[in-house]
Design a protein around this nucleic acid. Structure first.
Lengths: 142, 142
DNA sequence: ATAGTCCTTCCACCTACTGGAAGGTCAAGG
DNA sequence: CCTTGACCTTCCAGTAGGTGGAAGGACTAT
């Protein structure tokens, strides 16, 4: 199977599939013309990866999950461990973002939003109690 | 003021401050020995940036906010617009993560987590209704 | 033969920094 | 005067997880 075909069936961009080969998540064979030739198992792996990534698992977690996927002697406990710590991470992030949302909402509500320069949002940003207010550990990335 | 001093007072790592200079957010002058010499205004700017970043504003938003900060003729509406769309982004992210959390929690709860290979989490990841299930737009990054 | 689509590799770019190496500068102590 | 240590400088590379694009080979249909 060519990469375009696999891309369509797995829902992953061809670029991503090549990237996944690069980092060793799949090892398609090659034809004489240099084209990648994907087996059905590769397609299954890629679909697995797509689903795992869409659930927010990191590439390294996906790598581990993939090895468990291929290990028919695996313990479900190992899978559960990974999912559980990921869930905990997600929930921590949610709390972080909720605190952030509350702060922002408060500022937005209090800002008149007219043509005068006077602005509670700016006031907050220029507050001089600098260091210790940065509770959100500076890593509040979306 | 030397960078170490500014770093301590603003709470930003020296590396970050140099980076902010690199991308044009601050323009400290230089001493004869090549050391950066920060004015009090630079310190204020950096503290402003630190607070804005901790609220999750992107660097480009910070750049705009900084120009509004320095513009005493600004309209608070301009500030509010930025904060509001950021808030909307945060809230969208929260919803996304909450859906994710619910899915993960369901899977985790249903997994026995024992030494047998049987596992609902794996079952989910190997589901073959591939493409359309990826509602989370593959960009569910923490 | 040619057009159009597919495939290949490689390199750069994205966000927002962070780590580290190699080397210059300055203040204090012996 | 010399040394030690803390500070400062620049530059290069790496992080996560890809995405965009260029240059060029391969295949299919007409």
């Amino acid at each position: 199977m060519n990469i375009g075909n696999v891309s369509e069936q797995s829902g992953l961009p061809a670029k991503t599939i090549r990237y996944y080969e690069d980092i060793g998540l799949v090892q398609p064979s090659r034809r004489d013309n240099g084209y990648r030739d994907f087996a059905v198992q590769d397609l299954h792996k890629l679909a697995f990866l797509g689903r795992a990534r869409s659930l927010g698992f990191s590439i390294e977690e996906c790598r581990t999950l993939l090895s468990l996927y291929e290990d028919h002697e695996r313990s479900s406990a190992d899978v559960k461990d990974i999912a559980q710590s990921h869930l905990a991470r997600v929930d921590r992030k949610i709390e972080e973002l909720q605190a952030l949302s509350a702060t922002l909402r408060d500022l937005v509500v209090r800002c008149h939003g007219d043509d005068r320069p006077d602005c509670p949002i700016m006031d907050d940003l220029t507050r001089s109690d600098l260091a210790e207010m940065r509770k959100h550990p500076a890593g509040t990335t979306l």
